[in-house]
Structure formats: structure tokens, C-alpha cells
Amino acid sequence: MNAPAPPRFRVRLFLERLAVGHVFGYPLAFVWAVASMPLAIHLHFERLSAIEHDTEAMGQLVVRLVAWPSGVVFVLAHLFALAWGLAQEKKRGQWTFLGGFGVLLGTGVLFGAGSWLWLYLR
């Protein structure tokens, strides 16, 4: 009796799933950038007040401040896609990607809603 051959690794499937993770990473990063703005404003209010009349410098500072959380989320989306691509035929990889995407999106929306509401009600 011959044992069944192990499934072979398909490069195209891996690259397609990595591309999906890359594309899905952009909206996630945007959600987290918008969600982290109130906290960035609150934590760095003095710095923002000092450059109040220089809108270009203020914009650059805010972008640098919100780039960290959105960058981390962007990398995490790629890691979830990497796990999905490496799993190939196993459903666990798909659930890792979809579950990770859902958790990142849900926490970003909840954190964003809470932080903007907190800033508005202050």
C-alpha cells in the first residue's frame, strides 16, 4: 500500500492570500489612525498648541503620532494573512485570518467610537 502524498505547497495560493491581507490592511490601518487621533491630541496637546498657527507642522505631527497604531495594525494584518497563506488547505488558517481581521476591526471601531465620544464630551 502506498501512503497518500502530502499536499504540495502552492506558491500562487500563498501570494494571493498575502495580497488579500495587504489590501485588507489598508482599511484597518485607516480605522486605527482615526481611532487614535483623540488620544494623540490629548497626550500631546501642549506640543500641538505650541505650533497652533503652523498647520503644516501640526498635520505632520498628528500623522507621525497616529502612524504607530495604524502601522502596528497593518503589520498584524499581514501576519494573519501570512498564517493563512502558510496553512494552505487547512481551515484553521482561514479562521486565523478572518478572526484576526475581525478582532482588529472590532476593537478599532469600539476604541475609535469611545475615544471620539470621550473627546467630544470633555
Score class of each variant (00 low, 15 high):
residue 48 L to E: 07
residue 22 H to A: 15
residue 97 F to I: 00
residue 87 A to G: 07
residue 82 L to T: 01
residue 68 W to A: 12
residue 57 A to K: 13
residue 40 A to N: 02
residue 11 V to H: 06
residue 43 L to Y: 09
residue 46 E to A: 15
residue 71 G to T: 07
residue 94 Q to P: 00
residue 79 L to K: 03
residue 87 A to P: 02
residue 83 A to H: 08
residue 60 Q to T: 08
residue 85 G to S: 07
residue 23 V to N: 02
residue 76 L to V: 07
residue 19 A to L: 15
residue 101 F to D: 01
residue 115 S to Q: 12
residue 18 L to K: 06
residue 110 L to R: 04
residue 69 P to S: 07
residue 77 A to K: 04
residue 21 G to C: 09
residue 107 T to C: 14
residue 19 A to P: 00
residue 82 L to S: 03
residue 77 A to C: 12
residue 86 L to V: 11
residue 96 T to Y: 01
residue 14 F to P: 02
residue 19 A to V: 10
residue 80 F to C: 08
residue 70 S to V: 02
residue 65 L to C: 02
residue 15 L to A: 15
residue 83 A to L: 15
residue 58 M to T: 10
residue 91 K to M: 11
residue 122 R to D: 10
residue 47 R to A: 15
residue 64 R to F: 09
residue 49 S to R: 13
residue 107 T to I: 15
residue 60 Q to R: 14
residue 65 L to Y: 10
residue 3 A to P: 01
residue 82 L to I: 04
residue 64 R to G: 10
residue 52 E to C: 05
residue 18 L to I: 12
residue 114 G to A: 12
residue 72 V to F: 11
residue 83 A to T: 09
residue 63 V to H: 09
residue 83 A to C: 13
residue 33 A to F: 01
residue 37 M to P: 01
residue 11 V to T: 12
residue 43 L to V: 00
residue 42 H to N: 07
residue 96 T to H: 01
residue 55 T to C: 02
residue 84 W to I: 05
residue 29 A to H: 05
residue 115 S to N: 11
residue 93 G to V: 03
residue 13 L to W: 03
residue 30 F to S: 05
residue 11 V to F: 13
residue 122 R to S: 12
residue 64 R to A: 15
residue 83 A to S: 13
residue 56 E to S: 11
residue 36 S to W: 09
residue 91 K to C: 00
residue 113 A to G: 15
residue 117 L to P: 00
residue 117 L to I: 07
residue 84 W to A: 08
residue 102 G to M: 06
residue 112 G to P: 05
residue 73 V to M: 14
residue 60 Q to P: 00
residue 113 A to C: 10
residue 89 E to D: 15
residue 41 I to C: 01
residue 57 A to I: 02
residue 59 G to T: 08
residue 45 F to W: 08
residue 46 E to V: 12
residue 92 R to D: 06
residue 112 G to M: 05
residue 21 G to R: 05
residue 94 Q to N: 06
residue 95 W to D: 04
residue 57 A to M: 12
residue 30 F to H: 04
residue 105 L to K: 05
residue 98 L to F: 14
residue 38 P to K: 05
residue 51 I to T: 07
residue 33 A to D: 03
residue 63 V to K: 11
residue 101 F to P: 04
residue 104 L to N: 02
residue 17 R to Q: 11
residue 48 L to H: 04
residue 108 G to F: 08
residue 13 L to V: 13
residue 6 P to A: 14
residue 102 G to V: 01
residue 2 N to S: 14
residue 68 W to H: 08
residue 2 N to R: 14
residue 108 G to S: 09
residue 34 V to M: 12
residue 33 A to Q: 09
residue 104 L to W: 06
residue 50 A to F: 04
residue 31 V to G: 00
residue 122 R to T: 08
residue 10 R to G: 00
residue 81 A to C: 05
residue 26 Y to R: 12
residue 68 W to Y: 10
residue 96 T to S: 11
residue 5 A to H: 11
residue 7 P to L: 13
residue 79 L to Q: 09
residue 71 G to A: 06
residue 27 P to I: 04
residue 43 L to W: 12
residue 105 L to C: 11
residue 96 T to K: 00
residue 89 E to C: 06
residue 47 R to D: 14
residue 91 K to G: 09
residue 2 N to H: 11
residue 90 K to N: 14
residue 95 W to E: 03
residue 115 S to P: 02
residue 105 L to E: 07
residue 106 G to P: 02
residue 15 L to I: 10
residue 58 M to L: 14
residue 118 W to C: 04
residue 87 A to W: 01
residue 111 F to L: 14
residue 68 W to V: 15
